[in-house]
Design a protein around this nucleic acid. Structure first.
Lengths: 214, 214
DNA sequence: CCGCGATGTATCGGACCGATACATCGCACG
DNA sequence: CGTGCGATGTATCGGTCCGATACATCGCGG
């Protein structure tokens, strides 16, 4: 549960950050899922995670080699870093990945951290998600088939659009699943993303081990 | 604000209903938007609307001709119906349709009640939504373009999928807008339903949609 | 020198969900 | 004949998350 908790724990494994930064990273990483993370949930969550001992607050180093702020009471950004317990917690959240993980945002955030997820779990999540979407798809087909006359044209159009999105997502998931089963390529198939980035390094292959500290 | 408030007010204009029924209709109508409406939000909202005077509670006829359950305190279904103030409120919510209306669920629920919305407002909402989606699309393109190397392959794939969905939705909206401007056919494109229709939104437009669905 | 946009931390009220509890009814299956 | 089970039905509680809002600093161009 708790999309934010999961995402924060995941992001802080890469490097310590302060709130504002965290929000930007979160927004970049989850842009396809969530519009923008609100401070109204970010800060309370940070405090919760801190209380649980999964992250710690590390006051920013005053000034590297510069003049000390003197008069103006130094504001200090609050930098958070993950603890050993936090890493454990994150690993546990991944391992447990259950049905909650199959709804839109739950799936999205887990997928965004697939690079830190072992292959078996990735497969489980992808298949669970597919099943869920298939169910939604069937529901929409039912409504469009059986209840069509009770609904107005706009409502029907909305359903049709939703149905289309479901079918498309199922196809996407199929490809990802096939891809995951054989081969290990993380990207769907084709797609010559101009830049030609190889990015061979990291999606942690089955091996799975930690390597922190950039 | 308040998707549920809007949807309940809209549904109750068609006929009075009790909670369970309302949930089913809500789920059918908003199936493309929301998985299923939770009672944990439905009942409190009903009470709120009642307190505001927008709906009233009309106890179900006790027992047709039967003996009253005596011992077992009969648990009647609670039927809600909309009031004049409620209709006014609904009309006001439609007329005010502002920026809140352009996020996913806000747009969805307004669209679902387009049959009760005047054409000018429909157009305004569709265009606002389009702009919003275009912004999201640009954000995703930015990330895919500029920040690509900082992100792992899975995250990128997620963004790509999201970008695709944005592009698709923009196209869908374009069609709806064009359709709305000229002609007045409520369904998207194909199938020349060219039949001249009266303008003026239809308060309760009978299911005069296309139902050619073998 | 002033404003203004980016950076930065923080709170409050409210919307909505998921789990849970409990009660009735009809009917299929043994 | 009973018995359990799935659909119908109302309701609450704790918790996540959002949107609006407030405030303070910094660098920059006008």
């Amino acid at each position: 549960m708790a999309v934010l908790e999961f995402a924060i724990l995941g992001l802080l494994q890469e490097s310590p950050m302060h709130g504002y930064e965290l929000r930007k990273e979160l927004t970049a990483k989850l842009g396809a899922i969530r519009a923008a993370i609100s401070y109204g949930s970010l800060y309370p969550t940070l405090r919760r995670l801190q209380a649980a001992g999964w992250i710690t607050e590390a006051a920013e180093a005053p000034v590297t080699a510069e003049e000390v702020p003197a008069l103006t009471s130094r504001r200090g950004r609050v930098v958070y870093k993950i603890t050993a317990e936090g890493k454990e917690r994150f690993a546990q959240l991944i391992a447990q990945a259950g049905p909650e993980t199959y709804d839109d945002t739950g799936f999205g955030v887990h997928f965004a951290f697939f690079a830190r997820t072992d292959q078996a779990t990735r497969l489980r999540i992808l298949e669970g998600r597919r099943r869920k979407i298939e169910e939604r798809r069937e529901g929409l087909r039912d409504v469009l088939g059986r209840a069509a006359e009770r609904l107005d044209a706009y409502t029907l159009e909305l359903q049709r659009h939703g149905l289309d999105a479901c079918e498309r997502e199922v196809r996407w998931l199929e490809e990802l699943i096939a891809n995951e089963r054989s081969g290990r390529a993380p990207t769907v198939p084709q797609l010559g993303t101009a830049g030609g980035r190889r990015e061979d390094n990291s999606p942690p292959p089955p091996g799975e081990s930690r390597k922190e500290r950039p």
